[in-house]
Design a protein around this nucleic acid. Structure first.
Lengths: 222, 222
DNA sequence: ACCTTCCTTACGGGTAGCCGTAAGCACTAA
DNA sequence: TTAGTGCTTACGGCTACCCGTAAGGAAGGT
C-alpha cells in the first residue's frame, strides 16, 4: 500500500479533483500536491532528506509556462530525474495526451509504470492504475491497448523532425541545405533533403509538402 | 445567489474538482453534472419542465468524441441552444483554450457571461466569475484582458479558413479553384486564390504557403 | 451616360519544388 | 581485387507556385 504520494499537475481543478478523490478513498496517508515541476523536485528532495520519501509520483505531461519560469519543462523530464535519485520510485503519467506517437517512447523506455489518459473515466482508470502498480503491474489506459501490439515502426528520426520544423518555419529546401551544411548535419544536399521529404510523404500519406507539414502537426511530430 | 447550477465537462477529474469545490463553498444548493452535451441538454429540458430550471451553466468548450456520438459537438453550440430556450440563463465557459482568436467571437456575440481559462488558478478564477455574474457583471480571465482592447481586426473570413483547410489537405491551387467553381464559391479562379493567399501570408507573417498553413494551425484557425 | 472604384479573372515570366537518372564514395563479402 | 549495396550528391526536365500587369465587369456617384 502506498503511503506517500506526490501529485504534479498544473491545473488546479484537476489537481484538486485527484486529491479529493484520493482522500475519499482514504487509502493513502499522505498526499502532497505541486503545480510546478521544479517545485515538485524540491519537495521530492526534501522528503528524501527527511527520510520520508515518496513511493509514488503521479504527474501530468505538459505544463503551461507562466511568470515563474520552470527549469524542468515536462512530466517525463521530471520523472527521468526523480528515477535517477530513487530508482525504486513508482511513477504514473496522467495526461490528456492521447497521441500514441508521443506516449510510446515513455512506455518502451520503461520510464513509467503506467499511462492514464485524462478522459471521461480518467479518474476511475487512475484508481485502477494505482492498484495495479501496487502489485507490480504496469497500467496502460484502455484507449491505448489497441495500439500496443501494432509495431508499424514509424522510422522517423530526429533528423526528420528537424527537417519538418525548418520546413514549417518557412525555409526553402535550399535554405535548409545551407543551414545543415553550416551546422554539419548530414545529409545536407538539396537532393537528399528532397529524398527524405519523399519518404516522409509516403509514410505520412501526404500529397505535397504543405499536406506533409499539416499532417506532422496533427500527429504531434512537430 | 444561484440556486441550481449545471456543470458540463467531459473529463471526470475536472468535473469532480469543480463539484467538490462548489460543495465546499456551500453557497449553491443544487449542483448537477453532465459529461455529454446531449445529456446536458436533456437534463436542462427536464429541469425546465419540472419548473426547477437552472440559473447558471458552466461548460467546457471542446468535448472528446466517444462511442456515444453526440449531436451537440461543443460547449458554445450547447449554450447557443440553451439560451434560445431560456434567454435569462447565465452562462460561463471554463476551458483550456487560451487562443484569443477562438474566444473573441464568444464574447463579442454576447453568447456568454464569462470566460475562464483553465490554468493554475482556474478554480479560483471560476469562483470569482460566479460571484461577478451574480451581480450582473461579465467575467474575463486575467490572461485575456490584455487582448481585449486591441482590435487589430484579423479580417479573416470563412472563405479564407475554407481555403486554408483545402490547402492543408494537400490540394493544389488549381484543384481548389475547380472545387470552388463546382460548389459556386466565389472567387474561384486560381488568380484570386493566389491573391487571397498573398493577403493571408501578409497578415499571418508567413514566408510561403507551408509557413502559412503551419501558422494557421498554431493559431487555431484551422 | 460616364467615370471611379473594387473585385474577379487572365496571362506571362521567374522561381521553388518534384521526379527520374546517374555519378561518386564508403563499406562488405566473395 | 572485384562486384555489390547503400547512401550522398548532382543535374535536367517538368509542374506548381509566386508576382506583377492588365483586361473585364458590377456597383455607386456625378
Amino acid at each position: 500500500m502506498f503511503k506517500k504520494v506526490l501529485i504534479v499537475e498544473d491545473l488546479d481543478s484537476i489537481g484538486f479533483g485527484i486529491v479529493q478523490m484520493l482522500k475519499q478513498e482514504g487509502k493513502i496517508e499522505i498526499v502532497i500536491q505541486s503545480q510546478y515541476c521544479d517545485d515538485a523536485y524540491l519537495k521530492f528532495l526534501k522528503a528524501q532528506k527527511d527520510d520520508l520519501p515518496f513511493d509514488l509520483v503521479i504527474s501530468d505531461l505538459s505544463f503551461k509556462e507562466d511568470h515563474r519560469g520552470s527549469k524542468i519543462k515536462s512530466g517525463d523530464e521530471l520523472i527521468k530525474i526523480l528515477k535517477l535519485k530513487q530508482p525504486n520510485l513508482k511513477t504514473l503519467i496522467y495526461s490528456v495526451e492521447d497521441r500514441f506517437i508521443k506516449i510510446r517512447p515513455l512506455i518502451e523506455h520503461k520510464l513509467i509504470d503506467g499511462y492514464i489518459i485524462k478522459s471521461r473515466y480518467g479518474l476511475k482508470n487512475l484508481t485502477q492504475a494505482i492498484k495495479d502498480v501496487q502489485t507490480g503491474k504496469t497500467y496502460i489506459s484502455p484507449e491505448l491497448l489497441g495500439f500496443m501490439n501494432r509495431k508499424e515502426v514509424f522510422e522517423i528520426e530526429d533528423y526528420d523532425v528537424n527537417l519538418l520544423i525548418h520546413l514549417s518555419n518557412g525555409l526553402t529546401q535550399e535554405q535548409i541545405a545551407i543551414h545543415f551544411r553550416q551546422n554539419s548535419i548530414i545529409p545536407s544536399s538539396v537532393s537528399s533533403i528532397e529524398k527524405r521529404l519523399n519518404r516522409l510523404k509516403l509514410e505520412l500519406k501526404a500529397k505535397n509538402a504543405i499536406h506533409l507539414v499539416a499532417n506532422a502537426k496533427d500527429l504531434g511530430l512537430i
